[in-house]
């Protein structure tokens, strides 16, 4: 379950990094924004909750594209560090705005939508809540879709090309801005999906951005430019977290992902599935 959350968030980091070499440190906040967008759309589509989710996800896709067009586009040609710092600033700004608009109180979009989070019995006596199950399913679907899109899709191949050599891609007639905007849009979309499903499962407040931050080690452990790596990294980080919480101390929960991250950076800085050469450029 935790692994699915991390994986769904981590693929957003990977998408943006792979295409533009920029670490989007505002990903957690963008994901939270997606969840709050659901509060907005919930008021519009009270009768049919999947429509509300779809609308919120659509809004998030748009948000990602707009973030690129109005903010990150200005950073092309600048240093990568400058772009990363811009995302940090964006994150802080978004968090502030979200507190102003929606207050720091915990909210329950599931109630607003009138959906009960029933629990489903699994074989073997375990139980899983409906939205947790939905989240795991979504993660699998998103990964399947992204992998085949990057492998076979026209725009997927373009994204890979642009990630490898932006200059050559431009000379071959690829509009880099369109590709980057698409990467940001997809990244925000997947993040928002995660944010929405978490909010539906366990409520929504300002601490959600921390989950986003905790997924970052998962992406890095797997190798920042690899989707498969993000999946593996999420499994590793999540199992480490669950085991340590269970056997050592529940308070460790916030710390574990970063412990794993540090251990990984010492042993294999480019991650499990990442390319070595990618990091040399940073």
């Amino acid at each position: 379950m935790l692994a699915a959350i991390y994986a769904l968030i981590a693929c957003g980091y990977v998408l943006v990094y792979r295409v533009s070499r920029v670490l989007n440190l505002a990903h957690g906040e963008l994901m939270m924004l997606g969840a709050y967008a659901l509060m907005l759309t919930a008021a519009q589509f009270t009768t049919y909750w999947p429509a509300a989710i779809a609308a919120a996800v659509g809004l998030s896709l748009l948000t990602g594209v707009l973030v690129y067009l109005f903010l990150m586009r200005k950073m092309t040609g600048e240093m990568v560090l400058a772009a990363v710092l811009t995302t940090v600033a964006l994150g802080i700004l978004l968090r502030g705005v979200m507190v102003l608009v929606w207050s720091a109180q915990q909210q329950y979009p599931a109630q607003a939508l009138g959906v009960a989070n029933t629990s489903i019995a699994l074989p073997g006596g375990a139980r899983i809540s409906f939205f947790s199950a939905l989240l795991i399913l979504t993660t699998l679907l998103v990964y399947g879709a992204l992998l085949s899109f990057l492998r076979f899709g026209r725009w997927g191949i373009r994204m890979r090309a642009a990630g490898q050599s932006p200059l050559l891609a431009a000379q071959r007639g690829i509009n880099l801005h369109a590709v980057y905007a698409l990467a940001w849009g997809l990244s925000t979309l997947t993040g928002a999906l995660a944010g929405i499903l978490i909010a539906l499962d366990s409520g929504l407040d300002q601490t959600m951005a921390i989950i986003g931050l905790k997924a970052f080690p998962a992406a890095l452990v797997g190798g920042l430019d690899s989707l498969v790596g993000a999946l593996a990294g999420s499994l590793i980080v999540a199992s480490a977290e669950v085991l340590l919480i269970h056997y050592v101390d529940p308070l460790l929960s916030e710390v574990v992902p970063f412990l794993v991250l540090i251990a990984m950076l010492v042993v294999r800085p480019w991650g499990l599935f990442g390319t070595r050469e990618e990091l040399d450029r940073v």
């Binding site: 890979r160 490898q164 200059l167 050559l168 431009a170 000379q171 071959r172 880099l176």
Partner: peptide, 24 residues
């Protein structure tokens, strides 16, 4: 003008160094 616009207007370059996408 941006390279991709020039490319689409009918000019193609075979560059000196990075000339293919190595992972594709």
């Amino acid at each position: 003008i941006e390279p991709h616009r020039i490319a689409r207007s009918g000019i193609a370059l075979v560059p000196e160094r990075e000339k293919v996408f190595p992972n594709l």
